[in-house]
Computed example of a mutant assay.
Amino acid sequence: MDIGKMKEDNTFYNGFEGEPEVDFMYGDLCLKIWDGYIYALMEKAPLDGKGWHGMTHDYHEFCGPWDTDEADVDSTEYLNDLKQYKSYTFEDANVTKVLDRLLDLFSKASKDNAKVHVVVC
């Protein structure tokens, strides 16, 4: 995917250059997030026996972008999955901020019935 016309938001990657990152691309935005923040979010995965879906499933089961390094994902499925994390408290306040940014991005894409391109690198 050509990101030449995209605005990169490195807020949650600054200071971690050279370490693993996950890029979420929708519209004209590329949101770069340090993998450590994604890990901190995903380690709160619900263990309610109802099965994982969305980003939680893909992350923990190494599917989608976590298997192929990049993929277009269903924004509504990821949005609904990420909403369940709103009730959690995270040690690092940046994880909550990352969650809020992801919810905003996936909400916009979902309203447009669009996919979000995710790159794991």
Rank of each mutant, 00 (worst) to 15 (best):
M1G: 10
M1N: 02
M1Y: 06
G4P: 01
K7W: 06
D9H: 02
D9M: 03
N10Y: 14
N10G: 08
F12W: 09
F12V: 04
Y13R: 06
Y13K: 07
N14T: 15
N14G: 11
G15T: 15
E17G: 11
G18W: 13
E19I: 11
E19C: 13
P20D: 15
P20N: 14
E21T: 15
V22D: 01
D23C: 14
Y26R: 02
L29M: 12
L29H: 02
C30E: 06
C30K: 04
W34E: 05
G36H: 05
Y37D: 14
Y37E: 14
Y37Q: 12
I38S: 04
L41N: 02
M42A: 09
M42W: 05
P46S: 12
D48E: 06
D48A: 11
G49L: 07
G49F: 09
K50M: 07
W52H: 06
W52I: 05
W52T: 03
G54Q: 01
M55I: 07
M55K: 02
T56F: 05
H57P: 00
D58Y: 10
D58H: 10
Y59F: 11
F62H: 10
C63G: 08
C63L: 14
C63Q: 12
G64I: 07
P65C: 06
D67P: 00
T68K: 12
A71R: 10
D72N: 14
D74K: 01
D74G: 01
S75H: 06
T76Y: 02
E77K: 12
Y78M: 05
L79G: 00
L79S: 00
L79W: 02
D81E: 05
D81Q: 04
K83M: 07
Q84M: 08
Q84P: 01
Y85E: 09
K86W: 05
K86Q: 14
Y88C: 12
Y88F: 15
T89R: 12
E91F: 10
D92R: 00
D92L: 12
A93N: 11
A93R: 10
A93D: 11
V95W: 00
V95R: 00
V95N: 01
T96F: 02
T96A: 09
V98G: 08
L99I: 03
D100R: 08
R101K: 13
F106T: 03
S107D: 07
A109Q: 00
A109M: 03
K111S: 08
K111V: 04
D112V: 09
N113R: 14
A114C: 02
A114T: 08
V116C: 04
V116W: 02
V119K: 13
V119W: 00
V120I: 12
V120Q: 07
C121I: 10
